[in-house]
């Protein structure tokens, strides 16, 4: 009886694994195909489009794609993306945590009302704001500058919410005790709160960095100068210019995704926890 059950369970688990492996294959195959094609020459692709592996691993496609024709090149696009994502993330961490600190530790009139107003902005879809934001940036004279790429994204209601939730788990007595010890409010924020809040800072920072790295429609509309393009816009332009040079396009897609995938493997556990608890995508 016992043996029978464990056999059944074994069989059941094998089926589960088979199904999950099929699924995992479907998830991974496009990435494999991207990398495989990126090493193939155009004639190789035309002659035998279904070959799983390239004849030889040469990096010509990568070299050629990196220069991206007559444009500023992907070196510049990478610099822009990393620069914008880093400043945006730093801004998010500082500005959002300051606001979250006030909501979690200070008593002041209309606290709930102000918090709900900020939280309510999350209900406004980003795509509906493109046109008015574009006009506002035009009036500020910021179109086609780094300011347009960075400033609107240095704080978000989501980060404030995430951090406030975390801060509320920190005993208020700690704040009061540090005040009694003669520490200033800012002193508490820098010396006690921030060091205690590294987990939530990491989660919020990852969301912000990833969102900035992958954002497309915003940089597409607020910049037009080639030297201000970020990776995603550069890739879209490159795709339009190269059309059907699949080897080149897959090489460009590969080097545009690999840095993020590598980074993801390092932080994936933290990251997935963050999503499971906050239900947030980007």
């Amino acid at each position: 009886m016992f043996k029978k059950k464990s056999n059944r369970e074994k069989f059941f688990k094998t089926i589960v694994h088979i199904l999950l492996i099929i699924g995992a294959f479907v998830m991974l195959f496009p990435f494999f195909w991207m990398v495989s094609t990126s090493f193939k020459t155009q004639s190789e692709i035309n002659d035998n489009p279904t070959a799983l592996f390239p004849n030889e691993y040469n990096f010509n496609n990568y070299r050629q794609a990196w220069k991206a024709g007559s444009s500023a090149g992907f070196g510049r696009y990478f610099f822009n993306t990393i620069f914008v994502a880093t400043i945006t993330t730093m801004g998010q961490l500082i500005l959002s945590s300051l606001a979250a600190f006030a909501f979690a530790f200070l008593d002041f009139p209309h606290k709930e009302r102000i918090f709900l107003l900020l939280l309510g902005t999350m209900m406004i879809p980003q795509q509906a704001l493109l046109v008015p934001d574009y006009i506002i940036l035009h009036k500020l004279g910021w179109l086609d500058t780094y300011l347009a790429l960075i400033v609107p994204w240095v704080c978000s209601a989501f980060s404030i919410f995430l951090m406030r939730q975390f801060f509320r788990g920190i005993p208020k007595e700690l704040f009061e005790a540090s005040r009694i010890d003669g520490s200033s409010t800012l002193g508490f924020y820098f010396r006690i709160l921030i060091p205690l809040s590294l987990p939530v800072m990491l989660t919020a920072g990852m969301f912000s960095f990833l969102g900035s790295w992958n954002s497309f429609i915003w940089p597409l509309i607020v910049t037009s100068a080639d030297e201000l393009r970020v990776i995603q816009v550069g890739l879209a332009n490159f795709a339009q210019a190269e059309g059907t040079q699949w080897g080149l396009l897959m090489a460009a897609s590969t080097f545009c995704t690999v840095p993020l995938i590598v980074g993801y493997f390092f932080v994936q556990k933290k990251f997935i926890q963050g999503i499971a608890t906050s239900g947030m995508k980007d």
Binding site: A24, M34, F216, Q232, L235, I272
Partner: peptide, 18 residues
């Protein structure tokens, strides 16, 4: 979990090309 999540973090532009 890591494998199934991989497409989510990669940029939509790159996977669209693929």
């Amino acid at each position: 979990r890591t494998i199934y999540y991989l497409p989510v973090i990669t940029s939509i532009n790159a996977v669209s090309l693929v």
